[in-house]
Nucleic acid binder design. Structure first.
Lengths: 364, 364
DNA sequence: CTGAAAGCGCTTACAG
DNA sequence: CTGAAAGCGCTTACAG
């Protein structure tokens, strides 16, 4: 609606006048909140169309004290793992007519706090979070504000919340067991910030595997992700940690476990540019399967996370929690998919082709 | 603030009562909209803190008829190109206290329409869009609603808007010229939907290069991205288009130009799994440099887009437009970076190491 | 610099 | 099933 060329919002009272009903009736028809006789409903809809009505989501949010928006707060949306979850969840939300707010914390607790405060002030309908710290006070404030919370990738140790997790320990254990099976005894683990429960669980898996083999040892390097925002910086950091490890030991490690896909990428890049043969001089295995890991020379052995599935489950849990706030929290743990390829030192099936590519879990 | 254990919102009138001032004064202090005497301002702030005040962004948005939220509407946020731009812009927005809504159109005009309607109803402060179609009616509606619009990657042919673009034609022309320089005469181009101006410009660049060489021909395959949402599907589609091309011709192409990074990835994957030597049997060059393209065997020749820079410029243009709505639209075109590696048939400098890696533009 | 008051566009008891 | 009316929490002319 224009007035002297200046656009003017069409409101419920305009529609009410046009259709000869009250604004309450307009609201009932257009929001579908209450039954209205067919004849009147049709008249209201026709008036809304005729006047070019557009809803005002802020007004609705103010009145209902909650918006329809959902929020995703991740360490780094540029990482394929989080980018895929964001794509899957946004898709679901958009189909429900809900906008999706996306934020990056950069693994920084201070930023996470600020962002979650913003999210609370937005009175979002729900939040999917990969908490930078399992004791995040900011996440606790979200729960206290009555906002449904789902965590992904990482646990949260406050009030019980629904989570979608991967069996990190089993995945890492299987990968390291395989490296040990190839005769390696000095294993290095390069992981992301240990504040993330996923990193710690993966390390625990490495330690279990190493503890089971006499004479085997584990060297650990933790990357401070805070200092490495963005894929390029994380890649570079992983390479640096690797070089320090290989150079700084009398008896350097012969096999590397990489805590996530970006770290794997950094490690492989550093090894290649240093001219170290994989797996001849240094064997490599890591969490996450990035789109080109199987095209590299050698193809990389990984524990792939079922990322799309994680996103679907997280979205489903979130919308269920929004619909039904009384629902019991649920923790869903999905298995990683082990894909033995050649970077771990070769594997009978991998060497001949695609065998083991889609096994789900090593019975170890 | 709690009442019988039920959380109750603290409002300006609570603060006003506590501080002994009017709600107007509270508003002036807390929003910083108007000068207030230091003594009163301090009292108001102290009261707000004491009561645990949290702002209500919906109320503000309703009153001011615009939210502080910005929106990003992209074909697919899972693609590294868009994921990086989203990360950079969100970072900037968050520092300004603005939430960022992110949406995926999947190159589907209908979905884009629905999403942009949602965005308009949210009365966002501004929008960065990679339009699925240069004549997008939905984008025109955004402009008409008075929402500042910046396009990235693609042009929009409605009212003039600010845009951040890459010199697609020059990049593609240089890449194809290099393939021709290696003696190839039957070139194939595999691109994304031609509804995107970037795809058409890259094709035009290919055609220019081919037209300059007698006896050279260009075969074109356009991927319908609509049918290939997500990286996995796009990769697969590119592989299929390639196979059809190689199998369906009497005299199949010997060199492939790939319209973007995901397509390049699909083409390389298909060639490798078909056992075709790169560049021996088929040479490859493409737009976008993905993080592992230089680690593949052979490393891939590409025209890299300065993605972070594109994101920074788009963010800057957006916030300038929000601050100053009267500003003239600006179109910024950045050069792609040519990185000649071995997949195009070898290159004097590339063969010996990292030469040409960071040249910016072929003088052609 | 400060306050009283209207009003942004919705929804929801309440009454009929 | 429908309407009259209050009110969600802010901001902003207007007046002083």
């Amino acid at each position: 609606m224009d007035y002297m060329g200046v656009p003017v919002a069409v409101t419920y009272s305009d529609i009410a006048r046009h259709a000869g009903v009250s604004t309450a009736t307009v609201s009932r028809v257009l929001s579908g909140s209450d039954p209205v006789s067919d004849a009147i409903a049709a008249r209201v809809r026709a008036s809304a169309d005729a006047l070019g009505y557009r809803s005002n989501r802020a007004a609705r949010a103010l009145r209902k004290n909650t918006s329809e928006t959902i929020a995703l707060v991740f360490p780094d949306i540029e990482q394929p793992f989080f980018a895929t979850i964001a794509r899957v969840v946004e898709d679901h939300a958009a189909r429900l007519g809900r906008p999706t707010i996306v934020c990056n914390t950069g693994e920084d607790l201070g930023r996470e706090q600020v962002l979650l405060d913003l999210i609370i002030d937005e009175r979002v309908a729900g939040l999917i979070l990969a908490p930078s710290d399992e004791n995040s006070a900011a996440a606790a404030a979200v729960v206290e504000a009555g906002i449904p919370l789902i965590t992904v990738d990482r646990r949260f140790h406050g009030d019980p919340v629904s989570s979608v997790l991967v069996d990190n320990q089993a995945g890492a254990r299987a990968l390291v067991a395989d490296l040990l099976g190839h005769g390696h005894r000095r294993i290095a683990a390069i992981t992301g910030t240990a504040a993330a429960t996923s990193s710690r669980e993966r390390l625990a898996g490495c330690q279990q595997a190493v503890a089971a083999v006499p004479g085997a040892s584990l060297l650990i390097a933790e990357g401070k992700m805070r200092d490495a925002i963005g894929i390029a910086a994380t890649t570079e950091m992983a390479g640096r940690l690797l070089s320090e490890m290989l150079a700084g030991q009398d008896d350097p490690p012969t096999a590397i476990f990489c805590g996530n896909g970006i770290i794997t990428q950094g490690v492989v890049r550093a090894l290649k540019s240093a001219g170290r043969a994989i797996p001849g001089e240094v064997a490599v295995a890591g969490f996450d399967d990035l789109p080109m890991f199987d095209l590299l020379e050698p193809p990389l052995t990984v524990a792939a996370q079922p990322v799309e599935e994680i996103g679907r489950i997280a979205g489903r849990l979130l919308f269920q929690a929004i619909e039904n706030p009384g629902r019991e929290p649920r923790v869903v743990t999905v298995p990683p998919q082990l894909r033995f390829r050649l970077s771990c030192g070769g594997h009978p099936a991998a060497a001949t082709g695609r065998g083991y590519m889609h096994s789900t879990m090593n019975p170890d």
